[in-house]
Design a binder for these strands. Structure first.
Length: 581
RNA sequence: GCACCUGUAGCUCAGCUGGAUAGAGCGCUGCCCUCCGAAGGCAGAGGCCAUAGGUUCGAAUCCUAUCAGGUGCGCCA
């Protein structure tokens, strides 16, 4: 359904014909031949670089090849002109009926119009959020949550079979700290004075957990050492925190397919099995690391450790997997976790980390490369910081000052739709400004509003048409005589709609969901532009008084814009607006 | 010191994984609503794509070096 790949196939057929006729060598590779929209619309609807790419290997001049190719393509009914331009571009113009046909296709296929077969038969695992289960989801994790969730939806739309996964870090020291914090709240529930020291978590959200513990065990643990209660309190506390986190995520519309517990890797032989796999490959050894140059820690002492030879798979230094007391470092269960993911048969793994974990990327890729013998690619996407603004100034967060901003705080103020969309208006690895005032503003400056407004306008047109007795069912609209959509402004909008399936594939290939948000903004821009033309030129309005047939064709165009916006917003996890208030 | 990310208009950022004369929003300048689709619209000015080399038909995009900012760097996850 991707018009661009259809035309590319047409170009490749023509090239193959030229091979048969001896005009091109038989052993030519066409991999680099592209068909894409030219930056300048004056150059036509599509341009192919075929002649330039093939000139050298074919030993012919680019313009010669282009001329011959133009002759062949001109025979196709869809192509109205094929002109050689510049250094050897072949600029193609497509018949208006092709663009009008796009509208019909959209109305027939609905929001599936942009679905791709690109990922057919491929399974991908997207791991995201994965915050420590020690408290509510912090605003800093919101971007990763939205990014990961949207990426998963995008890949699904592109035909992949997607698993959304959350890795619960419930195996390390921080859940012990959590347990001790809950214990303090438990003592408090029994009327004791407590002090939150040693880095314990003072947040109010643990008060009910302490109370719950009291309700469950009474005063059984009061005055007892932690060897008595730690295990139980830890389990109770992490369960409570995961409930809290799930709740927070659901506020944003984020739902996981699977939660994977780090703890489940301990005492089950899973870590040992993963390390053994590396050991069998000769990648585990005892050794001593060099201190980092230029920044030797004060207390540096050479120490012999069990190391993973990650340098054999692209890392800069080998990494320790075991502490000197014989327990695992945090890296070991991470290796085992990814070993587990690989063994579940995924064709592609994606991890979404915060940018502060950037130093972790190479070793994780090295581990996956080693464990899968280079067969399972791991793509790690880092999400940069979000800077919050309020009343025109940076909004400082501080636990001490009590301005600890959570995901919930943000969502309750601006809503899930705005939160999600805004988080995706920037590339994942670029910092993002989140301005509480601007994201709610109703102006062109605010992309959320701008896109929603476009959709609402279409809905408004449909309502008005319905009031006027015009049938606006998609099936009826698809059957309208679309050839009346002949004005350049209308065709421009149809061309933009034709880009949608291609955009989906590009975004999915590069794992960049923000492209969807940007595309929707552009599409909305084209739509509003056409709408505005209707101010000066009544013949461009969607509703034509007394002419139901023409109205239906124009409504069909508007409706197909709404369909594509809906499809795009659905990927972003945003509900389209029916009307603006 | 090393690694990764970033550097594009006055500001905030896109730039379709190498294409033609590098785009958008805001801001700036000038026009456009007694009424019909102005929670705006049209037009214009504004760029050595951090710098210097290299690869090639062709580079903001790829490679190398340099500069600037951010992040990270052995028993914290």
């Amino acid at each position: 359904m991707n018009l661009f790949s259809e035309i590319r196939d047409l170009v490749l057929d023509a090239l193959a014909q030229m091979q048969d006729e001896g005009a091109l060598p038989a052993d030519l590779s066409f991999d680099n031949v592209t068909v894409e929209p030219p930056r300048d619309p004056a150059h036509g609807d599509m341009a192919t670089n075929a002649a330039m790419v093939l000139a050298k290997p074919a030993g012919r001049k680019p313009r010669e090849i282009a001329e011959a190719l133009a002759g062949k393509l001109g025979a196709d009914a869809r192509i109205t002109s094929a002109e050689v331009a510049g250094p050897g571009f072949l600029n193609l113009r497509l018949a208006a009926s092709v663009w009008q046909g796009i509208v019909g296709t959209i109305l027939e296929r609905g929001t599936d119009y942009g679905r791709s077969e690109m990922g057919r038969g491929k399974r991908v695992n997207v791991e995201y959020v994965s915050t420590n289960p020690t408290g509510p989801v912090h605003v800093g994790h919101t971007r990763g949550a939205v990014f990961g969730d949207t990426l998963a939806s995008l890949l699904d739309y592109a035909g992949y079979e997607v698993t959304r996964e959350y890795y619960i870090n419930d195996g390390g020291a921080q859940v012990d700290v959590l347990a001790r914090s809950v214990y303090l709240r438990y003592l408090e529930a029994h009327g004791r004075e407590v002090a939150f020291e040693d880095g314990t978590y003072p947040g109010d959200y643990l008060v009910p957990v302490g109370q719950a513990l009291k309700d469950k065990v009474g005063d059984a643990y009061v005055g007892k050492g932690e060897e008595v209660w730690l295990d139980e309190v830890r389990a109770l506390a992490t369960d409570a925190m995961m409930d809290l986190i799930r709740e927070d995520l659901s506020l944003l519309g984020v739902r996981m397919d699977r939660f994977f517990s780090e703890k489940s890797l301990y005492g089950t032989g899973k870590i040992e099995a993963a390390i053994k796999d590396l050991d069998d490959k000769g990648l585990i050894y005892r050794g001593t690391l060099e201190p980092p140059k230029g920044k030797t820690p004060e207390d540096w002492e050479p120490r012999e450790q069990t190391l993973f030879r990650s340098t054999a798979h692209g890392d800069d230094v080998d990494r320790p997997i075991m502490k000197s007391d014989g327990s695992w470092t945090y890296f070991a269960p991470d290796i085992a976790y990814h070993y587990d993911k690989i063994s579940r048969g995924y064709d592609l793994l994606i991890d979404v980390f915060g940018a502060d974990h950037g130093g972790y990327v190479k070793r994780m890729k090295a581990a996956v490369s080693a464990l899968s013998d280079g067969n399972v690619p791991l793509d790690i996407k880092l999400t940069q910081l979000v800077k919050l603004w309020k009343n025109g100034e940076p909004f400082k967060m501080s636990k001490r000052a009590g301005t600890f901003v959570t995901l919930r705080d943000v969502v309750e103020q601006v809503g899930p739709d705005v939160t999600r969309f805004v988080m995706l208006t920037r590339k994942n690895d670029a910092p993002l400004d989140f301005d509480f005032d601007k994201v709610l503003e109703q102006s062109r400056e605010n992309p959320v509003f701008y896109v929603q407004y476009a959709h609402a306008r279409v809905m408004s047109v449909l309502r008005k048409a319905g009031d006027g007795g015009i049938d606006t069912g998609d099936a009826t609209l698809a059957g309208a005589d679309l050839s009346v959509l002949a004005h350049e402004a209308e065709l421009a909008l149809a061309r933009k709609l034709a880009e949608w399936p291609r955009l989906v594939e590009i975004a999915a290939r590069s794992n960049e969901p923000h492209r969807v948000a940007l595309y929707l903004y552009e599409l909305a821009g084209e739509f509003h532009a056409l709408w505005n033309r209707g101010n000066d030129d009544p013949s461009l309005r969607f509703l034509q008084d007394g002419d139901a047939a023409t109205s239906q064709a124009k409504i069909a165009l508007a409706r197909s814009v709404a369909v594509v916006i809906s499809a795009g917003l659905d990927i972003l996890g945003v509900k389209p607006a029916q009307e603006m208030r």
